[in-house]
Write a protein that binds this DNA or RNA. Structure first.
Lengths: 200, 200
DNA sequence: ACCTATGGAAACGTCCCGTTTCGTTGTCGC
DNA sequence: GCGACAACGAAACGGGACGTTTCCATAGGT
C-alpha cells in the first residue's frame, strides 16, 4: 500500500484527521520493517508519511508511544487463543508463535526498540512496564490459570513462571536469536511445567 | 597562536600511556554511576578524564567496548564462587548477588547500556553475544555442572536452565526491578531446580 | 638524530531530537 | 453567515552527541 505524496493532506478542520494517523502508523511500520529499530527516526517516519513532525508529536509524545502503537496494530491482527490441553504444549505453542511473529513482522523490532528506549528514559520505562507488559503477558497468564485449575502448576508459582517464560523469549529476541529452535523451546516449556504441581 | 599546555597527561612516547587508560576507565565508571546509561556520552567521559576523544576511540572503538570495559573492571573486583550444596541454594545466591551488584555499582547500568546498544547496532550485538555473555554465564554453568553430577539436573537441561536464569535476571534489570525480592528469587531458584533430575 | 606512535585540543560535518513559528484549511458554535 | 478554533504541513531552530580529522608536542625505539 503506497502513500500519496504529491498532494499533501490538508487539515480537515478543527479535528483529528484519520488519514494522517493511518499514514503515520503505516510509515512507522514500514520504516521499522525496512530499516529496523536502528533506522527508526521520527524524521524518517514524517518524511515517508508526508506528515509534519508536530503532527506526530501531537498524538505520540514519545518514540516509545509510536513503537507501542505499531506493536499494538500488529498484534490486533493476530488474536491467538491457545489450548492444547497441557501446560507444556501451551507454553511451547505460544513461545514458538511469538518468536515467529517477531521474525515475520515489525513487531519484533518494535519490542527491541521499546526495551532499548526504556534503558535511557524514565518515561519510556513506564510505557514498557505499564502499557506494554500487561497485555503482552496476558495469554501466558490465561494458559497458566487453566493449568493451575488442572493442578499442573501451583497458583503461587504463576507469577514466577510468567517471568521466566517472558525472560526466556526476551533474551532470545534481544540477542538476535529469533530462529525456530524447536527443541530448546519445547525443553524450556517442559521444564517450566514440571515444577511443583500435583502430578497426574 | 600558541597556547601553553595546562597541566595534563602528555604522551610518554610511542607506546600506550597506562595513566590515560586508567583515567578514562575511571571517568567512564564515574559518569555511569552518576548519570546512568542515559547520560553516558563519550564527550562527557573525555571531558572528565581530561583526555581527547581520539584517545578513547583508539582503544575502545565503540561505546559497547567502553561499557564492557567498565563492566569487566567492576567484575574483576568480585570474584565469587558459590557452593551451598544444593542447586536451588546456589541459583538463589547467585541471583541475589547479581542483582545486588547491579544495584550498588555501575555494572547494572553498563549491562543496560550493552543491551540497549545491541538493539541498534550489529557490532554491538556481537560484543554482547561473544564477549559479554560467555564469561557472565560462567558461574551459572559451573553451578549447574556440579548439580548435574549430584543428579539434581539432567545434563541436557543445563543449557536451557542457564537461559531461563539469565532471562529472569535480565528482564528484571531491564525493567528496573533490581530490588532484593528474596521470595520471588528463591521461588524461581526452587522451580528451576525441581525439573527432571533424579530426586535424591 | 630521525622515525613513529602516542597524547590532548579543537573543530569538523552529520544526524536526530523535541520545539516553535507560520500560513492554510475546514468544522463547529454562535 | 461568520468568526473562533484546532489540526495540518513545511520549515527552521537550538541543542546534543556522534565519529573523524587536523594539528602540534612528546619521547621511546632504532
Amino acid at each position: 500500500m503506497r502513500l500519496e505524496r504529491r498532494e499533501g493532506r490538508r487539515s480537515i478542520g478543527a479535528r483529528r484527521n484519520p488519514a494522517a494517523e493511518a499514514a503515520i502508523l503505516a510509515a512507522a511500520r514500514e520504516v521499522l520493517a525496512e530499516c529496523g529499530y536502528r533506522g527508526f527516526s521520527v524524521d524518517e517516519v514524517a518524511r515517508r508519511a508526508g506528515a509534519g513532525k508536530p503532527t506526530i508529536y501531537r498524538w505520540w509524545p514519545t518514540r516509545s508511544d509510536l513503537l507501542l502503537a505499531v506493536h499494538s496494530a500488529e498484534r490486533a491482527a493476530r488474536i491467538e487463543a491457545t489450548d492444547t490441553g497441557s501446560l507444556a504444549g501451551d507454553l511451547s505453542t505460544i513461545g514458538r508463535g511469538m518468536l515467529a511473529a517477531w521474525r515475520s513482522s515489525p513487531a519484533g523490532e518494535a519490542v527491541r526498540g521499546l526495551v532499548a528506549e526504556a534503558q535511557a528514559g524514565e518515561a519510556a520505562l513506564v510505557v514498557l512496564w505499564e502499557r506494554f507488559m500487561p497485555p503482552w503477558t496476558e495469554p501466558v497468564r490465561a494458559v497458566l490459570g487453566r493449568a493451575a485449575m488442572r493442578g499442573e502448576v501451583e497458583p503461587a508459582d504463576i507469577e514466577v513462571v510468567t517471568e521466566l517464560f517472558a525472560g526466556f523469549l526476551w533474551r532470545r529476541l534481544l540477542t538476535g536469536q529469533t530462529d525456530d529452535d524447536r527443541a530448546a523451546i519445547e525443553r524450556m516449556a517442559r521444564l517450566l511445567s514440571s515444577g511443583r504441581g500435583r502430578k497426574p
